[in-house]
Amino acid sequence: MEKSEMLKAIGENIKRIRLEKGLTQVDLVGRIEARIDTTNISRIEKGRTNATIHTLFRISQALEVPLTEICNLSK
């Protein structure tokens, strides 16, 4: 799997989970316990940036799902 495909798949997972929970990007940013802005969330969801594992972990905590669900590439 190419890096760009992997980033896009992770971003799609984040967006899908966020929408399933009825959250906007602003809502998600409000739940993350660190400095991150909606622009960065948007870039992550579109696969345009390579988020650190720490950022992905914080997003998974904010979405109340295991990190493995965000990083699942088999969907």
Rank of each mutant, 00 (worst) to 15 (best):
I70W: 08
R18F: 07
S4Y: 07
K3D: 10
K15I: 01
E64A: 04
T52D: 02
T49V: 14
R48E: 14
C71N: 12
Q25V: 02
T68G: 04
R58N: 11
K8Y: 11
K21F: 05
I32H: 01
T24A: 04
E69C: 00
F57A: 10
Q25F: 01
F57I: 05
A51Y: 05
D37E: 10
T55W: 09
I44S: 04
I41H: 07
E12K: 15
V29R: 11
S42E: 06
K15A: 14
R31N: 12
L28E: 10
D37V: 01
M1V: 10
T68F: 03
E12P: 00
E5L: 13
A9D: 04
D27P: 05
P66H: 12
N50V: 08
T49E: 05
V26F: 05
M1C: 06
K3H: 11
K3T: 14
S74L: 06
N72L: 10
K8Q: 14
I17Y: 06
N50C: 05
A34W: 00
C71R: 14
G11S: 02
I44Y: 07
I59F: 09
T49M: 06
F57C: 04
I53C: 08
L67D: 10
E33Q: 08
S4P: 01
N13G: 00
E2R: 14
L67C: 09
K21T: 05
R43W: 00
I14H: 09
M6G: 00
N72P: 01
Q61L: 12
K75R: 12
R31Q: 13
E20K: 15
V29D: 08
L28N: 07
G47T: 05
T55Y: 11
H54E: 14
E33V: 01
L23S: 06
N13F: 03
I53S: 13
D37A: 03
G22D: 11
S42Y: 13
T68S: 15
I36Q: 08
G47V: 07
T39S: 14
N40F: 14
K15D: 09
I44N: 04
I32F: 01
T52G: 12
T24G: 07
G47F: 04
I59A: 02
A9H: 07
E5H: 13
E12W: 03
L23K: 13
E69G: 00
L67E: 11
E64D: 15
K46I: 00
R58L: 15
F57W: 13
N13T: 01
G22N: 14
T39Q: 12
E2H: 10
L73P: 06
I53N: 14
R35H: 00
R18L: 11
I59P: 02
E12M: 13
T68V: 11
I41Q: 09
Q61V: 04
G47A: 03
D37M: 03
D27R: 08
T52A: 05
K15Q: 15
C71E: 11
I41N: 07
G22M: 13
E64R: 09
T24M: 09
G11K: 02
K75L: 04
L28C: 09
Q25C: 03
L63C: 10
N13Q: 02
N13K: 03
E69K: 14
I10T: 01
L73R: 11
T55V: 15
L67H: 12
M1I: 07
L73W: 06
P66Y: 06
S60I: 08
I32S: 04
R43G: 00
T68R: 15
Q61R: 15
T49H: 03
I32E: 06
T55G: 04
K21G: 06
C71D: 02
